[in-house]
């Protein structure tokens, strides 16, 4: 287990829930440490618990047992409100289905998380423009999600995730709904963010080609980390 400047550390992490009177163990005994500045891929078959683990990292779901520290915060002990504030400051999340707000333009979607920060209008504008520019979508700022292609929507979603300059960028199957060309563009963009900005990225994928962009790949199966093979590049 790595402890040197780890951004995520979890020990004996468990996630259970009850369905129909039966306890379902989604994650069991997860011990993991991810370095700050790393680009990590979480791989595994469907139902292995990849997305659940990512959601725990993002603080959008609570673990049942064990400990989880993200960016120095023991998030199990944060209240609902504190957890929301922490997410706003520390986490950027990219969804497989983009999840842009349909009634907002690309610009307004990217601006959305900045309302939670004490920024002037001018500073918000500067950051949104910079984020849209960095994902190559600056000429589409006034377009609504329905007027964008899947690849463009995902780029806007990435801009929305990075506009707050989060310590941790989490991506759940970011290319899962895209064609090959658009997927390659999105992965190049994530690799660029990691390489040039030192952005920490944890990405869930089931596609080895997509995972190949990551420095490190962690495998999950039936809610457990596989001892091997963990790939490091």
């Amino acid at each position: 287990m790595h402890t040197t400047d780890a951004i995520i550390t979890c020990a004996a992490l468990e996630k259970h829930y009850t369905r129909g009177g039966e306890t379902v163990r989604v994650l069991e005994s997860i011990d993991l440490s991810l370095d700050r500045g790393a680009f990590v891929a979480l791989m595994g078959p469907s139902g292995s618990g990849k997305t659940t683990l990512l959601n725990l990292f993002a603080g959008i779901d609570r673990h049942t047992a064990g400990s989880l520290t993200v960016d120095g915060h023991d998030i199990a002990h944060l209240s609902r409100a504190a957890l929301a504030a922490w997410r706003a400051a520390c986490v950027g999340y990219i969804f497989q289905l983009y999840h842009l707000v349909p009634v907002l333009t690309a610009y307004e979607n990217v601006e959305l998380p900045l309302y939670l920060q004490p920024l002037s209008r001018r500073e918000r504008h500067r950051r949104v423009s910079e984020a849209l520019d960095s994902v190559g979508i600056a000429d589409r700022y006034a377009h609504y999600p329905r007027q964008l292609s899947g690849g463009q929507e995902q780029r806007v979603a990435i801009a929305r995730a990075i506009v707050t300059q989060p310590a941790l960028l989490l991506a759940d199957e970011p290319t899962g709904d895209l064609d090959r060309v658009a997927a390659a563009g999105v992965m190049d963009l994530l690799a660029h963010l990691h390489r040039d900005r030192g952005q920490t990225i944890v990405m869930v994928t089931h596609d080895p080609a997509t995972a190949h962009h990551a420095q490190r790949t962690v495998f999950l199966e039936k809610g457990r980390l596989l001892e091997t093979p963990e790939v490091r590049r």
Partner: peptide, 16 residues
Amino acid sequence: QREVSVLQTLGFGGAH
């Protein structure tokens, strides 16, 4: 509901 979840993920709390 999904839109609300997206907002929550972005950091909007219950009061928001």
